[in-house]
Write a protein that binds this DNA or RNA. Structure first.
Length: 339
DNA sequence: GTAGGGTTAG
């Protein structure tokens, strides 16, 4: 019952059912924690986790995974260390290590990562494809792209996540051509790219400055029934904009079936700065101001465009605005971590 | 009685 509710996203119903249960076994606690994890509710997951009297490996795994997949790598590693400590002393398994490796690459902590690799050997955890993929991601994020590719090459079965990880890895390591080649290999292998894969491949086309090919890829994405997110549009606007095709970029934004976020307009604004275009620059900037009034970078960009074309008074006025906004931040609580 | 934990972006 709980898992059924969790699967269709009815987490409150699952909780009601859970609360009404006279006796809760391990599985029900784990189902509830992973349900909160999937819906991004770290606090409720943690609350439940610490209500458990006797915690086993699977419960630790559920909570560590919750931290890791919700971008709390430090807390994931903290709990992992707690698990290894003498007063808990539970030996991790493949599942634990996959989540911890992910936390590690989120932090870009290669030293802890290589320690984990030898630790795995020490306690006899065999490197399966999931673990190799997580390790691949770590190496790629830390700049060891050759080591990442070695691991990729050694996979028993290259699946969607493996290809996507490697494509993203080539992308962040400045190897767009390798990313593009791998994407083609993936399509040939009949593995269907998802939204994340397209983020990687479109970024690669962008970095390689391959406008036509990138545009074609974006179109084929939609033909394959994958609906681009605002992030994908932002990449496309950047690609077209950097090539000086500002009007096309603008039209792409206007034709979006979803609301463009500030990053989309910001990409156009940046392109307008590169090409000293006031016309679209003003439109892009106005949208950025409306969407994110507190981000001063947008005001500066427009000010720089004005300066480029000799409109000093307009530039000055905007720079004054930036100063005022900067000052206004000081008495506030902008340095308090938001969560 | 039944239900569970892994890897990819932002």
């Amino acid at each position: 019952m709980i898992s059924g509710y969790v699967e269709c996203g009815k987490i409150e119903l699952a909780r009601n059912f859970f609360d009404a249960m006279p006796q809760r076994n391990n599985v029900s606690w784990i189902t509830m924690i992973s349900g909160y994890s999937k819906s991004g509710n770290i606090n409720l997951a943690r609350e439940l986790f610490y209500q458990i009297g006797e915690r086993d490996l699977h419960m630790y795994n559920a909570m560590i995974t919750c931290y890791s997949r919700n971008s709390r790598p430090k807390e994931a590693i903290e709990l992992f260390n707690q698990m290894l400590s003498l007063d808990v002393d539970i030996q991790p398994d493949e599942m634990t290590l996959a989540s911890i490796l992910s936390a590690c690459s989120q932090l870009g902590d290669l030293r802890f990562g290589t320690w984990l690799e030898s630790y795995m050997r020490k306690i006899g955890i065999e490197m399966d494809d999931h673990l190799a993929t997580a390790l691949m991601d770590l190496y790629a994020k830390c700049g060891s792209i050759d080591k990442a590719y070695e691991l990729f090459h050694g996979l028993r079965e290259k699946d969607l996540v493996a290809y996507t990880t490697m494509i993203l890895g080539f992308g962040i390591n400045g190897k767009p051509i390798n990313a593009i080649n791998l994407f083609e290999e993936m399509v040939d292998a009949h593995i269907r790219p998802n939204l994340i894969t397209y983020t990687g491949i479109l970024t690669a086309y962008n970095h390689a400055g391959l406008v036509e090919q990138g545009y074609r890829c974006f179109m084929s994405m939609m033909e394959n029934g994958i609906v681009p997110s605002a992030d994908h549009y932002a990449i496309m606007v950047d690609l077209l904009g950097r090539a000086g095709r500002l009007e096309e970029a603008y039209k792409l934004i206007k034709g979006m079936p979803i609301l463009p976020h500030a990053e989309v307009w910001g990409a156009l604004l940046l392109a307008c700065k590169l090409h000293c275009n006031v016309e679209f620059g003003e439109i892009a900037a106005q949208n950025c101001f409306d969407l994110e009034p507190e981000t001063t970078a947008y005001y500066s960009l427009l000010a720089n465009i004005y300066a480029d074309v000799g409109r000093w008074d307009d530039a000055k006025m905007l720079r004054k605005k930036v100063m005022e906004k900067g000052m206004a931040k000081i008495p506030g609580s902008s340095w308090v971590e938001s969560s």
